[in-house]
């Protein structure tokens, strides 16, 4: 914690930018995980194991909620005030 930060960029604003990247990636991970059951071939049994599928979906759901809850406080505060002038991740580019 007490290590000196690298001099070439501000550690704090760098972290905030990566946090935003994380927030952008989270739904993509969600899409992948929610679509995964499509690939599960109903191989061994004639019918799929509904209870197992359901538990899987709810676990993914819970993880997404938890990660979003962890990310949210850091994202919600002073978004523009701390936004760097660098064009690295300007929203206008989207």
């Amino acid at each position: 914690m007490n290590r000196r930060g690298p001099v070439f960029l501000a550690r704090r604003s760098y972290r905030i930018r990566r946090l935003r990247d994380g927030a952008r990636l989270l739904p993509l991970a969600g899409v992948f995980l929610f679509l995964l059951p499509i690939l599960w071939a109903p191989a061994e049994t004639v019918t799929r194991d509904t209870a197992r599928d359901g538990i899987y979906l709810f676990v993914v759901w819970g993880v997404l909620i938890a990660v979003a809850a962890v990310l949210a406080p850091g994202l919600g505060t002073g978004e523009e005030a701390e936004a760097p002038a660098s064009a690295e991740d300007e929203d206008g580019a989207a």
């Binding site: 935003r20 952008r24 989270l26 739904p27 969600g30 929610f34 759901w61 997404l64 909620i65 990660v67």
Partner: peptide
Amino acid sequence: FLTIYLGPTLVFVGWWW
């Protein structure tokens, strides 16, 4: 039936977009 709630979940979790 879960699809009806998974879609909104993705939109809200990806609110930054």
